[in-house]
């Protein structure tokens, strides 16, 4: 996995609440057996009309935001289906960080597995960052994962929380299967005791 350290980029505003993973990547693109190439279909139904033409006023179709690497999104971002195709599509498009008031659980975890940083902020901060993102001139933000700071265009700094283990994996680009396999002996030991106790399981 790619390391995540600092990110300097354009933040795109998407204030709609309950942005679900069906919106992020509709089902017709789940037939793939690959992880790559989903970016062009990110937000497919909001982004293209029935004839496949770009819908001009959709934020990620606006020239400036085509280069966005951050989304400031509405509450309960990523709800719905567990499809990891959603973060795969975001990553392929170039999104590396999503800021919201709240995230759906599975999507939140899936982001970390793909080098995307989801950040939870308070409603007040969220409003300010949304306003920043809405104006092209102020839509540039810097994310500093190591020091857990969002640096706004006006130089204001916003602290954020992130789970220590997840942060460690992102900063070092670690594949957690490898980390877990280092505990193989522990797992084998547990299994032995477990199968004695729960012989039917």
């Amino acid at each position: 996995m790619e390391k995540f350290n600092t990110l300097d980029g354009i933040a795109a505003p998407m204030p709609l609440i309950n942005i679900d993973t069906d919106m992020l990547i509709p089902k017709q693109f789940l037939k793939t057996i690959k992880r790559t190439g989903l970016g062009e279909n990110l937000f497919f139904e909001m982004r293209y009309d029935q004839n496949g033409n770009e819908i001009k006023d959709f934020v990620l179709n606006r020239e400036h935001y085509k280069n966005a690497s951050i989304i400031v999104g509405g509450a309960n971002f990523g709800c719905g289906s567990s499809r990891e195709h959603a973060p795969w599509a975001l990553k392929d498009f170039g999104i590396k960080c999503i800021i919201s008031i709240s995230f759906a659980d599975i999507f939140f975890n899936n982001c970390f597995k793909n080098g995307i940083l989801p950040i939870i902020v308070s409603e007040e901060i969220h409003q300010n960052l949304m306003k920043d993102a809405e104006v092209e001139r102020t839509s540039y933000m810097k994310i500093d994962l190591k020091n857990q700071k969002i640096i706004r265009n006006n130089e204001d700094q916003v602290d954020f929380e992130v789970d220590e283990f997840k942060k460690y994996c992102l900063l070092n680009g670690l594949d957690d299967i490898g980390l877990t396999l280092q505990k193989s002996d522990k797992i084998r030991g547990f299994e032995k005791e477990y199968s004695n106790k729960f012989s039917w399981a």
């Binding site: 992880r35 567990s82 499809r83 990891e84 973060p87 599975i106 975890n109 899936n110 597995k113 793909n114 957690d176 299967i177 877990t180």
Partner: peptide
Amino acid sequence: IGTSEVEH
């Protein structure tokens, strides 16, 4: 779970 977790 997501696909990365499926693999895990």
